[in-house]
């Protein structure tokens, strides 16, 4: 019998050659799923820790410093004066409540508008129509935030289209006001609310809706008892966007908010005008704390799994 030299050497090397380091690492990784996962998430986790956690910590630490009001130098002598001001000065309570109010209003209005639109897109529209709708909802996201805010400045103005539309009804444009700002913010964040709800609706199987109807539920009962509970996580996910983005806004309110201000404006004033970084950091803790509470409430609905 003629030996096959090639086959022999190959076979021999496979068995006897010492495994290379890379090979050993590979096989270790292959068999150890946990290690694999840890290595995979290590990099983004490190990034997250540096960029987000460290930045937040730095902000928090800064809030305990003070600014020399004359020279504008920041001094790292520890005190809680900034926080005492936050809790004792009615300005901060007023503005916090106002900001919270607008954020909630914008969130609720956006959800109410987004629900029927998303429902139409996911369950009623033809695939072609759905594509058009998705694009037209995403389209405004391509335009700059500022462009949209200034467009609304024009819409809301005394000579704007809103005034023209409302005049025959005997109404006036809300103008540059809290209402105007809520409208504009509601418009700007709407896509962020529609999309998760739309995705959530798409995930609701058609036959569950059919089953409900089959069992005798009229449309409204189906919406209330089946669609809404199943959508709750998606709605919560959408609300996170509308709520948190509104909580942090200071540009829109400046453009269409008239003579009013939100927490973001106070932060901006303290950084930009007063050059009081520590106070700004302390104020910035308010929306962070509110978001923290909001998210921990939302987490219970399972919405965070939806993001």
């Amino acid at each position: 019998m003629i030996e096959n030299p090639v086959g022999k050497t190959m076979k021999g090397s496979d068995i006897s050659a010492p495994k290379s380091f890379a090979h050993r690492v590979s096989s270790r990784l292959y068999t150890n799923a946990k290690l694999r996962l840890r290595l995979l998430i290590a990099t983004p986790l490190l990034w997250l820790a540096l960029v987000y956690v460290a930045a937040l910590l730095a902000l928090f630490v800064t809030a305990f410093w003070t600014m020399d009001s004359f020279t504008g130098e920041i001094r790292a002598d520890w005190n809680i004066e900034n926080f005492v001001k936050l809790f004792t000065n009615s300005l901060y309570q007023t503005v916090t409540l106002r900001t919270l109010g607008i954020a909630l209003l914008v969130t609720v209005v956006d959800i109410l508008i987004a629900l029927p639109i998303a429902f139409f897109m996911a369950k009623i529209a033809s695939p072609r129509m759905r594509g058009i709708l998705v694009i037209s909802i995403l389209m405004p996201l391509w335009a700059s935030y500022l462009v949209k805010a200034y467009a609304w400045r024009s819409v809301l103005s005394n000579e704007g289209i809103l005034q023209w539309l409302l005049r025959p009804l005997g109404l006036d444009t809300p103008g540059y006001s809290l209402v105007g700002a809520a409208l504009t913010l509601g418009y700007i964040w709407l896509p962020y609310v529609i999309l998760p709800i739309y995705t959530g609706l798409e995930k609701v199987p058609q036959n569950i809706l059919e089953a409900s109807s089959d069992l005798g539920a009229k449309t409204w009962s189906t919406l209330r008892l089946i669609v809404f509970p199943l959508l709750l996580p998606a709605i919560a996910a959408g609300s996170i966007f509308a709520f948190s983005l509104t909580m942090g806004d200071y540009i829109t309110i400046n453009i269409v908010g008239g003579a009013t201000q939100m927490l973001g404006n106070l932060v901006y004033t303290n950084v930009g005008t007063a050059n009081n970084l520590p106070m700004a950091a302390a104020i910035a803790m308010i929306p962070i704390a509110i978001m923290f509470i909001y998210l921990s409430v939302i987490r219970k609905t399972g919405a965070l799994d939806n993001l």
């Binding site: 007023t94 004033t269 009081n276």
Partner: peptide, 15 residues
């Protein structure tokens, strides 16, 4: 009153 006091006052005026 110095400028920082004015800044604080201005924030309060705007409410």
């Amino acid at each position: 009153t110095d400028y920082s006091e004015w800044t604080t006052a201005w924030q309060e005026i705007k409410g």
